[in-house]
């Protein structure tokens, strides 16, 4: 398995109206996750994902989406939907069989990141990371 893109920058824009909430989100779908899986009969695999550190005041989600090219061959499994990243592995793609994604520029699962301000409660004291570098790790493993 390999991530086929370079570093990703997600910058939440500020607001211009006093009193307004920072509800802007920053999204990026440039990342492609390439895969080659040869699974024995009866074996399915999953891709899990985690990040290196818990965020403060903000939230980073990741979602696996179908490849944008037609090179993907085999049983690519099912998508687990939007995952809010934490330091614990969470399933991103289920039931992967034997498959390969191709190795051309846009081959592989499309990985969509969304970065946003966490929902803040009234009176909650929030310290927001202004600028941070985070590492996201994808792992493929047998599901059973």
């Amino acid at each position: 398995m390999a991530v086929a893109t370079g570093d990703i920058e997600l910058q939440i824009k500020g607001v211009t109206e006093a009193g307004a909430a920072l509800t802007n989100t920053s999204e990026n779908s440039d990342t492609r996750l390439r895969i080659t899986s040869l699974a024995e009969i009866g074996i399915v695999r999953l891709v899990s994902v985690k990040m290196s550190r818990a965020l403060s005041g903000t939230e980073l989600t990741v979602q696996a989406l179908p490849p944008s090219t037609t090179h993907f061959t085999g049983d690519g499994g099912s998508y687990a939907g939007v995952v809010t990243l934490s330091t614990q592995d969470q399933v991103l793609i289920n039931n992967i069989g034997t498959c390969w994604s191709g190795t051309d520029q846009n081959d592989g699962y499309t990985i969509k990141y969304t970065y946003k301000i966490k929902t803040i409660a009234q009176g909650e004291i929030v310290n927001i990371d202004q600028q941070t570098l985070e590492t996201v790790t994808f792992t493929i493993s047998d599901a059973n």
Binding site: V3, D7, T58, T137, T139
Partner: peptide, 18 residues
């Protein structure tokens, strides 16, 4: 390539004072 892969994300928010 192995069974794990990582990517680095730069996350940022501007200071706001309105």
């Amino acid at each position: 390539d192995t069974n794990t892969s990582t990517t680095t994300l730069s996350l940022g928010i501007p200071e706001v004072s309105l």
